[in-house]
């Protein structure tokens, strides 16, 4: 189970109401294999919900392969693409997706606005969860905040225009970051080296608690997982889900880069990490 809390908690809530939920196991890279989906389908399965890019690991699941098999089986497919849209090409028709969640603030737009793609098909019907005026073809009532929509639209247009150049630039920064840490021993890479977005790197540092490391890295704003689950001190359920030991899960940090990250910042980050990890290991 490595889904985002927004999906996990929603499904758990449905389970309490008597809906049966089948939870899928990711592979060791954090991806959901199409075969696992195929084997887990039951006759009464109404829908499958998966994330395209994992927010903690940056790994990319093969949505196209899963979409093709689900369409053939007549099962609705919902994909959370909050970390994918604008980072890699997303084509809802080619992917055979029925429902797709989008967020503005992961792609240089404002917080507080997102969208749900709902395929125009008699099979893909969605019951409103918000009533009062029948906005959005009855699926989501409420006065539309125009400036938020304009912001998301502009951000998505800019993302589309930079879909060729920006990932390549982020790849360079990522290479620079990883090679800048090569001198450091006992660093474990979490996630997929091949199937991933360039902007997210998750690393475990042997012998150094993530909490102490973050305190030491006071000149860097990084995360020990997902801000969406930050109310808990448990080690990341995502890392546990892919078989990372509790010890290394407690020693994991997520570094994520973007449009305004500079090479200078990456160099600075590497020197800080090497210094602080070396210092913390020495006083152990």
């Amino acid at each position: 189970m490595i889904e985002h809390k927004a999906v996990v908690d929603t499904c758990k809530w449905l389970e309490q109401g008597g809906v049966e939920v089948t939870w899928l196991r990711p592979d060791r890279e954090g991806r959901i294999a199409p075969e696992v989906v195929a084997e887990s389908l039951r006759d009464e399965t109404a829908m499958v919900s998966l994330m395209m890019v994992n927010n903690e690991l940056g790994c990319v699941t093969d949505i196209a392969a899963i979409g093709a098999l689900l369409r053939q089986r007549g099962v609705l497919f919902h994909v959370d693409a909050a970390q994918a849209a604008g980072k890699l090409p997303v084509d809802v028709s080619a992917l055979n997706v029925d429902l797709l969640s989008l967020s503005a603030h992961k792609v240089y737009g404002p917080k507080g606005v997102g969208a749900l793609y709902v395929r125009r098909s008699p099979d893909a019907l969605v019951e409103a969860q918000m009533h009062g005026g029948g906005h959005e073809r009855g699926m989501r009532s409420g006065t539309l905040p125009t400036h938020q929509m304009v912001g998301m639209g502009k951000a998505f247009e800019m993302a589309r225009e930079s879909l060729d150049a920006e990932p390549a630039r982020l790849e360079e920064l990522r290479d620079m970051f990883l090679s800048g840490l090569e001198g450091l021993e006992g660093v474990h890479f979490n996630g997929s080296r091949e199937h991933r977005v360039p902007g997210i790197v998750n690393l475990s540092f042997e012998g150094v608690e993530a909490e102490s490391l973050m305190l030491g890295l006071r000149h860097l704003a990084v995360s020990s997982g997902s801000a969406c689950a930050s109310a808990t001190v448990e080690p990341s359920f995502v890392l546990r889900g892919i078989g990372v030991s509790d010890e290394l899960a407690h020693r994991a940090l997520r570094f994520s880069f973007g449009r305004f990250t500079s090479a200078e910042e990456i160099e600075f980050a590497c020197s800080q990490i090497v210094d602080v990890v070396t210092r913390l290991r020495a006083v152990r």
């Binding site: 985002h4 927004a6 999906v7 929603t10 499904c11 449905l14 809906v19 109404a46 829908m47 919900s49 609705l76 919902h78 959370d80 693409a81 909050a82 849209a85 604008g86 997303v90 084509d91 809802v92 028709s93 080619a94 429902l99 797709l100 969640s101 989008l102 967020s103 503005a104 603030h105 992961k106 917080k111 507080g112 606005v113 997102g114 969208a115 749900l116 793609y117 709902v118 395929r119 125009r120 893909a124 019907l125 969605v126 019951e127 409103a128 969860q129 959005e136 073809r137 699926m139 989501r140 539309l144 929509m149 998505f156 247009e157 993302a159 589309r160």
Partner: peptide, 28 residues
Amino acid sequence: ELIHADPREIVWTSGATESDNLAIKGVI
């Protein structure tokens, strides 16, 4: 356009968390 959809297939929400809720609770 970013996801190669028809504009009529886009429903505005407050963010991806709401979109996930609408998709899953809405279908079920």
